[in-house]
Design a protein around this nucleic acid. Structure first.
Lengths: 342, 342
DNA sequence: ACCTCCTTGGAAAGCGCTTACCGAAACGGT
DNA sequence: ACCGTTTCGGTAAGCGCTTTCCAAGGAGGT
C-alpha cells in the first residue's frame, strides 16, 4: 500500500495543522473550527481524494464500527436470511459487517471470534446451532467472555448456554405446535427425518414433535426416526432410507425446510404422488422455498428479524446482561399436508 | 475498549523486549529467536490470553488481510452463492471477508468501496449487475481506481466497463443457447418476463434469447415482453400481466430463476396446470430451486466458482491488468419445458 | 486603558505494533 | 590468544490519526 494521501497532506495543502484538519473533518465534539478554515480543509480533502485510514482511527479512538458475524454457511438460505437482517440493521447504525463461514467446523467459531477480537469489533454475533462438542463450546464461551471483558458486545443466536445475550428459537414449542396441527388434520402415523443427532436444534425439534404426539396419545416408533445430515441431500437420503422400509406412515416431518425439499425429491424419484402418497412438513419457512409445489407446511421463524434483533440487543446500553430472548415460530399449513378424511 | 492485554504486557511477563516478543510471536522472516526465549514468550502470551491488535498490525505493516465484498442483497440466493465462493477461497488464503449489501441503491456501491479503501482492504470485489445510471458507474470506477492506485486489488463480477479485472457472465450466449434448445423442443410461440429495463444483465438475456429465435425464423412480439422487478414478486406480477392478455404462447422465459418461480406461482394461482398449460424456463440454476416441481429448465451458472475465481484473480501477482474472464452458462433442460409433439 | 474570559489554532503525546539498526556475546579460524 | 563473523536481543523510529494541553488573540467588563 503506497501513495495514499494522509491527513498530513490535507493539512499542509490547506495550510493548517493536523489538529485543525482532523477537527474540521470529523467535526469533533465541543471544539469548533472557524468557518473559512473548515471550508479550506474540506476542499483540500476533496481535491486530494483524501480517505481517512480506518486503522489509524481505530487505534487513536480505541474502537471500531465493525460487527463480526459468524455463521455456518452463507449459501444456506437459513443463514443468509439472518445475515440479511444483521446487515440491514448494521447499515442503519453505520456499522460494517465482517462475516465468517465456519462450514460447521467446531473450532472455527472460536477462531473467528478471536479474529474479531483482534479487530476490536464492537459487536460479535454468532449464529448456528450448538453441538454436543463440549470442548468447542467451552473454547467459544471463553473467547466470547474475553471479547466482552475488553468492552465488546456479543450476541448468540440459537446457541444457548453461552455467557452472552442470547436469542433462542423455540424449536420445541414450534415442533410441538406443528405436531398438534398435523394430528388435528387427521394424521396418525408419523415419521421424522431427524437430522444430525448431535445438533441441538435438530433434537429439540424432534422432541417437541414427539411430545405433541404423546399428548394426543400418538406414537413415534424408533424405526420411524431417520437421522442424517441437515441438508437437502441429507433429507433426500433419509427419505430413501425411510421408503426402503416401506413403512405404514401418512406424514413425514423433516426437521428443516431444506431437508423437506430433498425428501420431496426422493419421493418423486420413486414415482410417488405428492401429497397424496404421503404428507410432508418442514421447519423454518425459508423464503425461497415458499413456492415449491405442493406448498410446504412448515413453522415460520422470523429469521431476518432475528438478525436485526441481534444487532439491536448488542447496541443497547445500560442493561443487565446476559439476557435471553425467546423467539417463537408459527405453524403455516400448506398443501403438502392435506387433511385426512375421518 | 479497555483492559486488553498488549504485546508490552507479554514482553514484560516474559522478561524480554517488545521486539523479541513480536519476533517470537510472528516468527518474522530472516530473524530467529532463541528456542527458550521463544518458548517463554509463547507461554506468557498464552497465560495472558494475548490477542494482537489487528489495527496496530495493519498500521505497522501497511496492509491488512481483509477482502471487501459488495453485493446487492445477501438474502438473494444468487448473491449468497457467489459470496459462499468468495468466503471459501478467502478463508483458504487466511483472509477475512467484510461484506456490504447495497440493496440496489446506485450510490451505495461506491460508498462501500470507499469504506473498504479506508480499511486498507487488500482485495475488493463488487458483484452485481451494472445499471444504466451513468453517474453511479463513474463514481464507482473512480473509487476503484483510487483503491487500486493505493495498491489494492479489485475485481468486478458481471459489471463490465469498470477499470479492473472483470468476470463477465455470458448472458447473451446463455440465453441464446436456451432459446435454441427451447426451439428445438418444438416451441414456437414465446414470451419473456424481461426484468428491469435498466439492468444490463436482464437486457442481455432478453437480446440473447431474441437472437436465438430470430436465427430460427421465430419471433418475439413486443407485447410478449413483460418487464418488472428482478425478484420473485416481480416474476409473479409480470406473469399475471401476461396471462391477462391471454396470449397465444407456449413457452415463457423468465430472465432469472427466482422470477420463474414467481411466474409458476402465478400460473398455479390461476388454476393452470404445469407444465401442460405453458412451459417455463429460468436462468442461473439456483441450487435451492433445483427441486421445484416441475423441475425448472434453466441455464446453469457456476456462481460459487465465480466467487472463488474472483478472489484468485485478485491474488495473482505479476500479471497485466485489467483482465477479462468470460464465464459461460450451460443449458439444463428439465420437466418445466416438455417437448412439443410435432 | 487594563484585565479577565472565551474562542480557536498548534504542538505533541500517545494508540499497539513492526522492523530497521545497533551492539554484545559467542563462535571458529589462524 | 586474537580478530572477523555470526547470532540474537534491545532501542527506537515510525505507521496515520485523535485529543489533551497550551498559547495567542479578540471580546467584553470595569
Amino acid at each position: 500500500m503506497t501513495g495514499s494521501v494522509t491527513l498530513h497532506d490535507v493539512a499542509r495543502r490547506a495550510g493548517v495543522s493536523l489538529a485543525t484538519a482532523s477537527r474540521a473533518l470529523n467535526g469533533s465534539a465541543n471544539r469548533v473550527v472557524g468557518e473559512k478554515l473548515r471550508e479550506r480543509v474540506l476542499q483540500a480533502a476533496a481535491e486530494l481524494r483524501y480517505s481517512p485510514n480506518a486503522h489509524a482511527q481505530a487505534m487513536a479512538r480505541g474502537r471500531t464500527n465493525i460487527v463480526g458475524l459468524s455463521l455456518h454457511d452463507i449459501a444456506d438460505p437459513y443463514f443468509s436470511a439472518v445475515a440479511a437482517g444483521v446487515m440491514r440493521e448494521a447499515e442503519a447504525h453505520g456499522l460494517l459487517v465482517t462475516m465468517a463461514s465456519t462450514e460447521r467446523r467446531p473450532r472455527a467459531e472460536s477462531d473467528y471470534v478471536g479474529a474479531f477480537r483482534r479487530h476490536w469489533a464492537s459487536v460479535v454475533i454468532v449464529v448456528g446451532s450448538r453441538t454436543d462438542d463440549r470442548a468447542a463450546t467451552d473454547r467459544l464461551a471463553d473467547e466470547l467472555a474475553a471479547f466482552e471483558a475488553e468492552g465488546g458486545r456479543a450476541v448468540a443466536v440459537s446457541q444457548p448456554r453461552l455467557p452472552v445475550d442470547t436469542i433462542s428459537i423455540d424449536n420445541h414449542a414450534g415442533a410441538r405446535d406443528l405436531g398438534q396441527a398435523l394430528h388435528d388434520l387427521g394424521h396418525r402415523r408419523f415419521a421424522v427425518l431427524s437430522g444430525p443427532a448431535d445438533l441441538v436444534t435438530a433434537t429439540e425439534r424432534v422432541t417437541g414433535f414427539r411430545e405433541a404426539l404423546a399428548r394426543r396419545g400418538g406414537r413415534l416408533s424408533p424405526e420411524h426416526v431417520v437421522p442424517g445430515p441437515f441438508t437437502r441431500d441429507g433429507g433426500y437420503q433419509a427419505m430413501q432410507q425411510l421408503l426402503d422400509l416401506s413403512p405404514d406412515v401418512s406424514c413425514v416431518f423433516a426437521v428443516n425446510d431444506v431437508m423437506a425439499v430433498g425428501a420431496m425429491a426422493a419421493m418423486r424419484d420413486r414415482g410417488l404422488e405428492l401429497p397424496a402418497a404421503m404428507a410432508i412438513a418442514g421447519f423454518d419457512d425459508i423464503a425461497t422455498l415458499r413456492d415449491v409445489n405442493p406448498g410446504l407446511t412448515t413453522v415460520r421463524i422470523p429469521l431476518e428479524e432475528i438478525g436485526a434483533l441481534a444487532v439491536r440487543l448488542a447496541l443497547e446500553d445500560d442493561v443487565e446482561r446476559p439476557r435471553l430472548r425467546r423467539i417463537g415460530g408459527e405453524v403455516v399449513l400448506r398443501a403438502s399436508t392435506p387433511r385426512i378424511p375421518a
